[in-house]
């Protein structure tokens, strides 16, 4: 794992590297070099298998984190490439030419996070949702509970509690 990273640092500027466990590491790459880095990893280092592509919404820092998790079939190690992109007009270069299934992931991200991948086939087609009019649902500022209560005729009689407080009230009322 360490040799791969050292190799990588010769060609690319790797911002930070974090070893989660012996066969899994995460590094941060900038948006511009990310696709080149991933191509390099696939073609020269042998990370041939794209495990997943997903996004994390860091709403406080005003950016999305895209995670490309790559797997090395021979060395059995994983490398996560994290790319931070701005939350405003979120856009990322497409990798559908590298892996066939990437277009499915990119369609999903387009729909659920509103991240655009120009050039990816069918990226604007609805994938999971149908006739969705709100902001993309996986964004942190979308409140699913409020939307559900507003839309789906909740059956009266359901009570919800915060489990910690409810338990405290039930079990230790005197404290």
């Amino acid at each position: 794992m360490q040799t791969i990273i050292e190799n990588l640092q010769k060609h690319f500027q790797v911002v930070s590297y974090h070893q989660q466990r012996e066969n899994l590491g995460f590094l941060i790459a900038s948006k511009e070099v990310a696709v080149g880095l991933i191509t390099h990893l696939r073609d020269y280092e042998g990370f041939a298998h794209l495990v997943l592509l997903t996004a994390v919404d860091w709403i406080e820092d005003e950016h999305f984190q895209l995670t490309y998790l790559l797997h090395h079939p021979e060395k059995k190690v994983d490398l996560g490439v994290r790319v931070m992109i701005s939350r405003e007009n979120a856009e990322m270069y497409s990798i559908h030419h590298l892996w066939e299934q990437a277009r499915t992931y990119q369609r999903e991200l387009r729909e659920m996070f509103g991240i655009n991948f120009p050039g990816s086939p069918d990226v604007d087609k609805p994938f999971i949702l149908e006739g969705w009019e709100e902001i993309p649902p996986y964004r942190r500022d979308f409140d699913t509970k409020e939307y559900s209560e507003k839309t789906y005729f909740p059956r009266p009689g359901r009570e919800t509690h915060d489990p910690a407080e409810y338990m405290k009230k039930k079990l230790y009322p005197n404290e």
Partner: peptide, 18 residues
């Protein structure tokens, strides 16, 4: 009946009899 596990989900209905 009332949404069950998914009572607060944005994509599943809560009451079928509606």
């Amino acid at each position: 009946i009332n949404g069950g596990m998914y009572w607060d989900s944005y994509n599943t209905i809560n009451r079928l009899d509606h």
